[in-house]
Design a protein around this nucleic acid. Sequence first.
DNA 1: CCTTATTTGTGTCTTAGGGACATTATTAAG
DNA 2: CTTAATAATGTCCCTAAGACACAAATAAGG
Lengths: 263, 263
Amino acid sequence: MFIFNIGIFSIFAILATIVYCVQKTQTKNIMSPDYDLTQYQNPLFTVDSVLFTILQDSLKVLLVKRANAPFKGRWGLPGGFVDVELDDNTDMSALRKIKEKTSVAPQYLEQLQAFSGINRDPRGFSVTLVYYALISPQQVATQIDSVDDVRWVDLSEIPDLAVAFDHKHIIEKAKARLQQKALYSMIPVYCLPDQFTIGQLKTAIEAIIAKPIQRKSLVRRIEASNMFEALDEKVKSGGRLAQLYKLKPDVDIVHFERNLSLG
Amino acid sequence: MFIFNIGIFSIFAILATIVYCVQKTQTKNIMSPDYDLTQYQNPLFTVDSVLFTILQDSLKVLLVKRANAPFKGRWGLPGGFVDVELDDNTDMSALRKIKEKTSVAPQYLEQLQAFSGINRDPRGFSVTLVYYALISPQQVATQIDSVDDVRWVDLSEIPDLAVAFDHKHIIEKAKARLQQKALYSMIPVYCLPDQFTIGQLKTAIEAIIAKPIQRKSLVRRIEASNMFEALDEKVKSGGRLAQLYKLKPDVDIVHFERNLSLG
DNA sequence: CCTTATTTGTGTCTTAGGGACATTATTAAG
DNA sequence: CTTAATAATGTCCCTAAGACACAAATAAGG
């Protein structure tokens, strides 16, 4: 009876102890095959995106009303944590978050840069890897209009808006990169529907770089880049009918050797 | 006796169980002030750097022999985990790691991009934020020569070398970015000592972009950029004495509107 | 001291491609 | 048929890089 008691309870006790110890060492083993990773406090890591479009001839950015702390209720960039189950890499994390908010994939997606620091998140050292993306407004129109926690915000409104984290700064950086890139590439087409006129492209570029450009220069680049093909279709424009163009399938984005001038 | 037995062992058992449970819930509480962060497995996050220099008129990259698994013994980029105690942000992590290997700070440091994926590290989903940096070989010469786990590797050797992780791919990306930037800026000066000749700069640029350039074009850019000042000192060069230049203090790096041609 | 090889520094013409702007072509409205 | 509006194109200008010749300065060798 005594033996039995020792047996039954000690087994229980030992089992519990074993579970605890296994749990501990497992954690240690997973985290430290050779290093002791536990000494490093892995930073908070998120992926955010600055999604741009052209609406009413001006540049807009997609903001989302935050549902959770920190900065609950404020506007911020769409993004969040990586889901290791769903995302093969951070590109897919960015894409997944954008799809959650717009229900479609953007035509253009590129890494901007990481922003990090000890103070940018109240929870501690954090890193956010930021992407910027371009999409045509038509693709998302219905989706956006039906919800009130997602909004296209004009870039001129940003300075006066209360924005979560350092997202205001991030948006400025993304805008600067987009502006620079608009000077030597055709990426602004990704803000347009897949059939577009030269006039629309000119307007989009001017909205992005906030300077007028020469239509002739644009035409020359369309020729030289060989990225586009003219459709046998024209469209009304308030004057002479405008030629429709579209991107050739599977073209690479050409980088011109000269920038458009910033006057 | 029976009671006693129940008492002593069950207390033991219950204690162990309590310890285990407290451990579990504590972990949960720390991680979830508002979200449930535990549902997200935070990815492994590291910071690595591609440090370039010009040595024997050709472009070299600094590699470090890995002291730990994974890829123990292989050459890899200098880098590692963020130390939240020491680093205010990831720039400082990169700088700290470079200093550990070279004992000096590079003249130029810039974020390249993040590389991520489920397969790039055997330990699981990982993200590495990569910086690239330029330094003059004189600054590090003595330090490097005295150790055998740090080495300047010529870029032509990289394809045939066994390199840890996806670092080979990362080096190629960094090289491409450096080449691109050499076409429209003067960053190659950061591979030179702070006093240098036009001939040295020409050689450095040609080593980076792997194409000859026109000396005259370089002279024009030196004039136009207004970044440099001529010292009242000349130096031997195998022919006519060469004018020494240095960067003016606190200048911004000028971005030219046109690229040098790639022939 | 003179010649030659070598590298630096400069002058100048060519070339590529964007800027400016005039002119023509189309379309809708009145 | 006229007018306003936009599209499309032609032409000249301007800037900065490419190409290349040539002069200047230095070291080595005779």
